[in-house]
């Protein structure tokens, strides 16, 4: 979890570079980020941001007591620091204490309801604690606040929707907002097939093929779906489409090993008697 905000007030001088490179050599077994931050904390011991950043690194390495010490130290330096709640929540979640994580964020999210990073963190903690509805609610808020939600985030929220029809509708919304992102398309395809919506799945693949620079694999997948649905004439046509797409490739790509393998697989499928 990255809740960092821009830090101001100090920057690395040539002398600090020297300190950092000294430290790096002096502690070869420790993550460089921790080594760097320790040097900077020694130079600026009153910075709560540096403590919180090092806490995040300690959390990443599961060095719990050092992480906790840094968060407590930051709290003493700046009791109202806006990142404190997130740091604590992140720490507890990493320790698999989701309820403590949710508690750590409670008042922060009352005063900062639009903090997407905090919403995501609480959604994860809620999901871990088994409160799926709470998690979905926070994810939906975060996805609404973010102008450009990331595919990973959409998928994470989508995975909480157990009912396939609802999950599929949610993916459609995601695809409309984010564009035809492969990971979302693949999950949607999987759900379509799970729901036995063969024609929807086929339409999805046809659409993907229409926009692809190399559509052959999408046609091939159409063929496989049709074949499994025992729609053999259409399957053959899809395999023929795949071969035709390969035919349109420049020779140097057509002759490549994977394409030759694909041709070898497709040819009997496109020509076999029904």
């Amino acid at each position: 979890m990255y809740y960092k905000r821009a830090l101001h007030g100090w920057f690395l001088t040539a002398a600090a570079w020297f300190v950092l490179s000294q430290e790096l050599v002096a502690h070869p077994g420790t993550d460089v980020a921790i080594v760097d931050l320790t040097a900077l904390i020694n130079a600026s011991p009153a910075s709560p941001e540096l403590r919180l950043r090092r806490a995040t690194c300690y959390v990443e390495h599961q060095r719990w007591s050092e992480a906790s010490d840094d968060i407590d130290h930051a709290a003493r330096l700046s009791p109202d620091h806006p990142d404190l709640a997130l740091a604590r929540a992140e720490y507890f979640l990493a320790r698999d204490e989701p309820l403590a994580s949710i508690n750590a964020l409670a008042s922060h999210l009352i005063s900062h309801p639009g903090d997407a990073a905090a919403r995501i963190l609480r959604a994860r903690a809620s999901a871990r604690s088994g409160d799926t509805l709470g998690a979905q609610n926070d994810f939906q808020h975060a996805l609404r606040y973010l102008p450009e939600p990331k595919p990973e985030l959409w998928l994470e929220a989508n995975a909480l929707i157990a009912e396939p029809v609802a999950a599929l509708a949610d993916l459609e919304t995601g695809l409309t907002r984010l564009g035809p992102v492969p990971a979302l398309e693949e999950r949607a395809l999987k759900l379509e097939l799970q729901l036995a919506r063969t024609d929807s799945a086929l339409q999805r693949l046809t659409r993907l093929a229409a926009h692809a620079e190399r559509p052959e694999t999408y046609h091939r997948r159409r063929g496989d779906i049709l074949f499994q649905a025992n729609r053999l004439t259409e399957a053959r046509r899809a395999y023929t489409d795949a071969l035709a797409a390969i035919d349109r490739l420049p020779e140097w790509l057509r002759l490549s090993e994977p394409t030759q393998q694909l041709i070898a697989q497709l040819t009997p499928l496109a020509t076999s008697p029904l």
């Binding site: 990255y2 809740y3 960092k4 905000r5 821009a6 830090l7 950043r53 997407a116 990073a117 995501i120 975060a142 973010l146 102008p147 450009e148 939600p149 990331k150 990973e152 985030l153």
Partner: peptide
Amino acid sequence: GRSANSLTQSGV
């Protein structure tokens, strides 16, 4: 990455 957040695609 210290002033940016890839998950929320925000920051400098």
